[in-house]
Design a protein around this nucleic acid. Sequence first.
DNA 1: GAAAAGTACTTTGTGGTGCAAAGTTACAAA
DNA 2: TTTGTAACTTTGCACCACAAAGTACTTTTC
Lengths: 96, 96
Amino acid sequence: MTSIIAHLNKIFDSRIRLGIMSILLVNDATDFNTMKELLELTDGNLATHLRTLEKAGYIESTKQFIERKPNTRYVITESGKNAFKEHVNALEKLMS
Amino acid sequence: MTSIIAHLNKIFDSRIRLGIMSILLVNDATDFNTMKELLELTDGNLATHLRTLEKAGYIESTKQFIERKPNTRYVITESGKNAFKEHVNALEKLMS
DNA sequence: GAAAAGTACTTTGTGGTGCAAAGTTACAAA
DNA sequence: TTTGTAACTTTGCACCACAAAGTACTTTTC
């Protein structure tokens, strides 16, 4: 028998990663600095969590220059949308 | 300005603790061994997470003997109910 | 009262994760 | 080629998760 919490996604144990996913679920694309301000994180910390999500295939990044400044934009993938929604659904089901 | 994830409760970063809370939210009281089976955990691991929740004031325990065996029952507190619901509400709001 | 049996811990050790701070890289503009 | 900004990467430390093993507690049996 599998545990009742098997449908909760280990990647979303982190509030910061939940925050990143929700930002990208609501907004089409968000850049590094905007996210840093929204979540009030240091560069290194944010970069680490973004990388974890990217390695999981839940987000994607594109680098470009805007107004002469480097700018990295992040978007959520279909896989990421599904995983996030399934996680929240699983949590809601646990409560019913 | 406070971060958008400020309303997510750090204690609920753990799937196991989420599982414990949801069990106790749905059931009036649950004993140690039942919880151990539902969550598929070792004694030590479960005891640690239960203690974390108890120290936070989210659950309470009572020891007794049932059918000649030691039995520890856990219940959720009002504070715990509120904290758990607020956490899930906060997560749902993040997605809207 | 000593031993057995079961529950519920506590301890120990190891590996993983989170984080800030500091250092590094990359690229464009001047 | 120097400067400036963004976006990492590295480092080091502290905390957390977990399994396994050991311990304590209470009841029943002998």
